[in-house]
């Protein structure tokens, strides 16, 4: 099959490349664009390590073709750092609360948490657990991930209040 042009906004910048229709978005991001934040975990739509944000929705980039993403706005974990390259709030809270051990699931966790906290800025612990249910971690037992997301909510809300 012929390759077709794919173009979308990635972390605020327009990117383009050629992809066969069967090329998954995760492979396009990692191999064509060299964006290796989103990871390939299970490749079966279960683990969430490949989670990216597409048009305001958390999606598993292993279950989407790159051509389907054409014209969309995509954010990966690379786009969640501060402009000066230091860790963003959610990244910092994952570090501070030991929300990771091996770190493989972390980019997906953080990208998902970012969207969850925009939709639900003051989540309960239960809402965090339900909202993060599409991301698997085989190390932490989730306690510290939940703590990190709750702490992120508090930090983001405090920053918002300070700005007002």
């Amino acid at each position: 099959m012929d390759k077709i042009p794919v173009t979308f906004t990635l972390n605020g910048e327009t990117v383009e490349g050629l992809a066969e229709p069967r090329m998954l978005l995760i492979h396009f991001l990692r191999e064509t664009l060299g964006v290796t934040g989103p990871h390939i975990g299970c490749e079966t739509s279960h683990c969430g390590a490949c989670t990216v944000d597409m048009d305001g929705r958390s999606v598993k980039s292993c279950t989407l073709f790159a051509v389907q993403a054409s014209g969309s706005e995509i954010v990966t974990v690379e786009g969640l750092a501060n402009p000066d390259g230091t860790l963003g709030v959610i990244q910092e809270m994952f570090r501070e609360h030991h929300g990771l051990q091996c770190g493989f699931c972390t980019p997906g966790m953080i990208t998902r948490a970012w969207r969850l906290l925009q939709e639900t800025p003051n989540p309960s612990e239960e809402q965090v657990r339900f909202g993060m249910a599409g991301n698997l971690c085989r190390c932490t037992g989730y306690q510290n991930i939940v703590k990190a997301v709750l702490a992120s909510a508090a930090e983001l809300n405090a920053a918002k209040e300070a700005a007002e």
Binding site: G48, R57, S58, V59, L116, F130, G131, A133, G134
Partner: peptide, 9 residues
């Protein structure tokens, strides 16, 4: 049904 990511699409 499934999980949040699946329900978005």
């Amino acid at each position: 049904i499934a999980d949040p990511q699946v329900r978005y699409l």
